[in-house]
Write a protein that binds this DNA or RNA. Structure first.
Lengths: 194, 194
DNA sequence: CGAAAAAAGTCAACATGGCTGACATAAATG
DNA sequence: CATTTATGTCAGCCATGTTGACTTTTTTCG
């Protein structure tokens, strides 16, 4: 289970006595080579789960992200999605069109601002999204079980802290904007789809 | 700091009382929506650090990975790198050629098996790699500090456990193969570059 | 020794998912 | 009515993955 650490540490210790600390004594602090590497392998396996499912639909990772965030924020605007994903309108446009055309996402004009396209998962989209959530959650639960009882809180705090402070509340902004819109006109948007 | 969790949890609680648990009572276990999302944001920020540096050299993430693993395993074979990265020879060939041509990586024929190309970082390649290690280690150290004293071990165990068991020792295989080669002919390869 | 296998490299073609730039349209806003 | 905003779209480029076919060099093994 701790195979990777042991061997990587051993290897580093044998052939390279700490690359960054070799010339001057730790000018930057301890190099976290093991965690850097583990993050690479862990994330690769983590995203490969949905990748396999997506392949069957002719979709890719980009589609997964869109489905995920629309699931998280039903009725979100296209602009909100662009802010979260940080890709261009053109890049998003491609995958969004495919998802709408194939009936995974429903795009409806906003009731109060009809320029907006508010995004919802269709039942078909919800089913697919839940597959992803299920398989990734399974991996996460297994990992948390293997890493100790209080690991969930530690891991969550760690992951939050890994995010740039200014990026830590993209969803707050989204929710704030939605709430603001609701306030400005009465609760029109809270359940626009019924 | 815990902004994301709070709001996302609140949001989920408000609008969707647990998507996977809505129809039947938790058929798959608790959905880890918060961690799924946090991993996405955390990893994006994590890899964006080197990305910026790489852009200045006309390089991309693929180059980063190659530099990283050659740094970890000086003298590794091209095949070893292919096994770790799990990309095709052709994909690796492109970035490797650029790295060799521009003097970041040195590729030398193996002493005992001259079909092999053993890969080493040049001083130039080492300098660049250490930039990446430094900046990513800084983020990791900060995150570990923010998430508690025993967090490093918990996080490391968690990340190892996130990896498919059969993938947990790619480096073992590499080292085993190298050691085997060394045994088979006496320690020819341990410092072939002097 | 000679055949087969292994390590590496290369050419060509294609897919995905990023990007920029330039526009177009509809709707809201002042 | 002019401007801004939200969205969408065309065209083309780049990075990095893929498959398939092949070559060269060298090692291994019957």
């Amino acid at each position: 289970m701790a195979d990777i650490n042991v061997s990587l540490t051993a290897r580093t210790g044998k052939s390279e006595p700490g690359a960054a600390a070799r010339l001057s004594p730790a000018p930057e602090g301890e190099p976290m080579l093991d965690l850097i590497e583990l993050l690479f392998f862990a994330y690769r396996n983590f995203v490969s789960d949905p990748d396999e499912i997506l392949h069957g639909f002719g979709f890719g990772r980009a589609h997964h992200r869109v489905l995920h965030f629309v699931n998280r924020h039903p009725g979100m605007r296209v602009t909100d999605l662009l802010d979260i994903l940080r890709i261009t309108k053109q890049s998003l446009g491609r995958v969004l069109r495919e998802l709408v055309d194939q009936g995974f996402i429903d795009s409806r004009a906003g009731a109060s601002d009809r320029r907006q396209r508010l995004l919802y998962l269709t039942p078909k989209g919800e089913a697919l999204t839940q597959e992803f959530v299920a398989i990734q959650s399974r991996r996460l639960r297994r990992a948390l079980e293997e890493s100790g009882s209080e690991s969930r809180d530690v891991v969550r705090r760690f992951l939050v802290a890994m995010i740039d402070p200014e990026d830590r509340s993209p969803t707050e902004k989204l929710i704030a904007r939605a709430d603001q819109a609701v306030e400005a006109r009465g609760a029109t948007r809270s359940r626009p789809a019924g």
